[in-house]
Design a protein around this nucleic acid. Structure first.
Lengths: 192, 192
DNA sequence: TATTCACACTAGCGCTTGCTTGGTTACTCA
DNA sequence: TGAGTAACCAAGCAAGCGCTAGTGTGAATA
């Protein structure tokens, strides 16, 4: 059953599942479709995952865990200047969003399909990630780089950035970093 | 079959469908659930709608049409001052989003479930609505109220505002108008 | 060599799905 | 009064769903 292991095989299957979940949506993705994409029969799928729900949870956990790690590292490696930290966080956010796009689209738009247990578990991960954001925004507010209510600002910022998955074209002329910089410039009173 | 009529009965059924689609998601909402909510049997549902897809299209059409009308009226009735127009548009957006919340959540998050024909038809409506936004943002940019690339700014703005459906609590202390004003203040260099 | 294990298979159960069919009821209006 | 029609119902079909049971196989382990 491999309830909670992270074998390379399982990781690969999780990656494929993420892709299908994005393409079709979780509900429309059948275990038979998943199996075919993985090159096995539908029955064999349940050797790797307890049930379909667990595949969804695995996809989201993987993505969120990565985002958290990357953001933490990025913040550790950059200076303490609020403006730099704000830009760094925005860049890290979009970088993760697009290098691990499938997993994050699933996390953002299929979250509600998680059962209660998985949701409770993954909420902690997500909260830890958002806490990084709130801290960075607090500093930026205190330094008067931006203005507004701390709660509202963080919601607006995350909304604007997350929504990019709906329209951003990775093959276009702008890099995720460009996008992040332009966004930070937009909400900062003084144009860079 | 009533292919494209808009009888009061059908409107009421559409409203109920929107609610269920939000609660459960389109795919998980069965025709039997819809019928029960409407107080009829599942077979009777197909007297009002050709198929399940058409119910989804009706929900989204209704919502988008309303948003367009409300935004147009609001812009017609307000002054030509770019700042006022920006605030007006933001207020109209959030006002519609929360008075007709179900339909808009469906439009935002179940768009991909539309078949090609419906999507092509509804795209025009949505584009017309977004065109209003782009015009308002262009004026605001020219007046130097805000700064940045016109394309990016409009995407970021719409993203931040649309994302509010994910966290805004209508029973909280803030009204949608407050929210709109705070948002506009956030992206404008000079605090009001 | 014997045993275990990961991984895959076949076959299909029990159930739900969207939708159809054939018919009934209640109301409107000439 | 009787034709037309909008609205509904009971019954059920064909397809597809998640998932299980039982089995086979080749590689690692004892």
């Amino acid at each position: 059953m491999n309830v909670m292991n992270a074998s390379p095989r399982r990781k690969e299957l999780t990656r494929l599942a993420a892709q299908l979940f994005v393409q079709e949506g979780f509900d429309r993705t059948t275990v038979r479709m998943l199996a075919q994409e993985m090159g096995i029969k539908s029955g064999s799928l349940f050797h790797h995952f307890k049930d379909k729900q667990e595949i969804l949870a695995a996809v989201i956990e993987e993505g969120t865990q990565n985002a958290l790690t990357i953001a933490r590292n990025a913040l550790n490696e950059c200076s303490a200047e609020p403006e730099v930290r704000l830009r760094t966080m925005a860049r890290a956010h979009l970088e993760t969003l697009f290098t691990d796009r499938n997993a994050h689209v699933v996390a953002l738009f299929e979250w509600r399909r998680l059962d209660d247990v998985a949701r409770a578990h993954l909420s902690h991960l997500r909260d830890a990630y958002e806490a990084l954001w709130v801290a960075v925004i607090d500093d930026a507010l205190e330094a008067r780089l931006i203005h507004g209510d701390r709660f509202l600002v963080s919601r607006f910022v995350l909304g604007a950035l997350n929504w990019t998955v709906r329209w951003y074209d990775p093959n276009g002329s702008r890099s995720p970093d460009d996008l992040a910089d332009e966004f930070v410039a937009m909400i900062m009173p003084s144009p860079a």
